[in-house]
């Protein structure tokens, strides 16, 4: 469903993604882990063309994202309207939530359906109310984001993403900005989505969640894939020494946090 091949990305001289090849299947919960600066966020942002990749291809259900091949074989920027259309099919949930602060929770959720997908406002509002109910925010419909807790804001952001009826949702460390006691409520909502068969690509440091909910786990380091395995075997029997090292360090941090 999301096919990534030969993907490279530079920021100036910094070679951040160094040849990524992976295909994410429909309905899969695909977890990405790796140390800070390994390129996890950049990869997610490339999938939604928030960053423009330098080489390689990203295809959503076979449609290339951002770049097209011109008749001469040259890479050219795709039309803005095509980029927007593809983006609307792949929603994104951000670490910092990024709700629109000048709009209420309901307005945040109906914005995309009404403005981008041109749904009738009445229908969009009905669907939005149902989604907000599903993420446990039916009493916050008319609240402004600044009055919500972090966990509530992130759940509203997930409802906003769902409202686009996307083919997949990309999550970039959705619980990293939350107070520890609010992490659970967001993970619970995500777990519910996974069980409903939504295609999810999740960057996270929540290893317990990755193990329980993930289908496959991919470990990145220095812009490359160092391990990609079914969740069970990824954690039970990691093969790459860097994965082993990474998991051990996370465990150490968790046990020292718990102490």
């Amino acid at each position: 469903m999301i096919r990534i091949s030969g993907l490279h990305k530079h920021f100036g001289k910094n070679h951040v993604l160094r040849g990524i090849d992976v295909e994410i299947a429909k309905g899969e919960v695909f977890v990405i882990v790796g140390p800070s600066g390994s390129g996890k966020s950049t990869l997610l942002r490339c999938i939604n063309f928030l960053e423009e990749h330098d080489a390689g291809e990203i295809a959503i259900d076979g449609e290339p994202m951002g770049w097209r091949l011109a008749p001469g074989g040259k890479r050219v920027r795709d039309k803005e309207s095509n980029v927007s259309r593809l983006r609307s099919q792949v929603a994104m949930v951000f670490q910092q939530f990024n709700l629109f602060p000048h709009k209420t929770v309901l307005e945040n959720v109906v914005e995309g359906p009404i403005v981008v997908k041109r749904e009738p406002p009445g229908e969009a509002a009905e669907r939005a109310a149902a989604l907000l109910d599903r993420v446990g925010l039916s009493d916050k419909v008319d609240a402004y984001p600044s009055t919500l807790s972090g966990g509530q804001q992130q759940r509203a952001a997930i409802a906003r993403a769902l409202a686009m009826q996307p083919k997949a949702i990309l999550f970039d460390e959705p619980t990293s900005a939350l107070d520890p006691e609010l992490v659970g409520e967001v993970l619970a909502v995500m777990k519910g989505l996974a069980h409903k068969g939504l295609t999810m690509v999740i960057v996270t440091h929540e290893m317990q969640f990755a193990r329980d909910v993930g289908d496959r786990v991919m470990m990145m380091d220095a812009g490359q894939v160092v391990e990609l395995a079914p969740a069970k075997s990824f954690f039970a029997a990691p093969r790459n020494p860097r994965t082993v090292d990474f998991l051990r360090r996370l465990q150490l941090r968790e046990s020292s946090d718990a102490a």
Binding site: S81, N98, F100, K117
Partner: peptide, 29 residues
Amino acid sequence: DRGQWDAAKSIGMGYGQMMRRIILPQAVR
């Protein structure tokens, strides 16, 4: 904030929609 642009783009807004509905209403204040 850059996150506002990211969020607007990620729901598929074009440049004009993003400016009119998300960026300018906040900037004008």
